[in-house]
Amino acid sequence: VDTGAERYPIWVAPGELRRLPDRLRQIGLDGRRVFLISDTAVIEAHGRTVAEALDSAGTPGASYVIPAGESSKTQRTASEIYTWLAGERAERRDVILALGGGVVGDLAGYVAATYLRGMPVVQLPTSVLAMNDAAIGGKVAIDLPAGKNLVGAFHQPVAVISDIETLRTLPRRSYTEGFAEVIKHALILDPSLLALLERESTRITSHAPDLDLVAQVVAQSSRLKALIVSSDPEERGLRAILNYGHTTGHGIEQATQYTQYMHGEAVSVGMMAAGRIGVELGMMSQALLDRQADLLRAFGLPTAAPGVNATAVLDAMKRDKKVEQGKLRLVLLEGPGLATVRDDVPQELVERTVQSVLRG
Rank of each mutant, 00 (worst) to 15 (best):
S221I: 04
T256Y: 11
A68D: 06
L296E: 06
L289D: 05
R276H: 11
V267R: 05
K318D: 15
V95R: 14
L314K: 11
E324N: 06
S71H: 15
V122S: 05
D22S: 14
S221A: 10
G278K: 10
G61T: 02
R291C: 02
A153Y: 11
G249V: 11
G282I: 07
I188K: 00
T166V: 03
S127E: 08
A108R: 14
G147L: 08
V229K: 07
L189S: 12
R48G: 01
G28M: 03
G87L: 00
A130I: 08
D294S: 14
W84A: 01
T74H: 07
R23T: 12
H155G: 06
I161D: 10
L85F: 05
V218G: 03
T247C: 15
P306I: 04
G237D: 06
A68E: 13
P60E: 02
L338M: 04
A298M: 03
D315Y: 13
P145M: 08
V104L: 03
A298H: 00
V341I: 14
G178V: 03
A146C: 01
H263G: 05
T40G: 12
L187W: 10
R18N: 07
Q347K: 05
L144F: 06
L124P: 02
A45M: 12
G69P: 12
A310Y: 03
G137R: 07
R276E: 15
T256S: 10
S63E: 13
L358A: 06
P209I: 10
R92L: 09
G147E: 13
A304L: 04
T49I: 00
G337E: 05
G118S: 03
M262L: 14
L358D: 08
A208P: 02
D39H: 14
L54K: 01
L124T: 06
D22V: 04
G105V: 09
S221R: 00
A273N: 07
R291T: 03
W11V: 12
S221H: 10
V269I: 11
K321M: 01
K318M: 15
L281A: 02
D143S: 02
D210S: 09
E265F: 00
G28R: 10
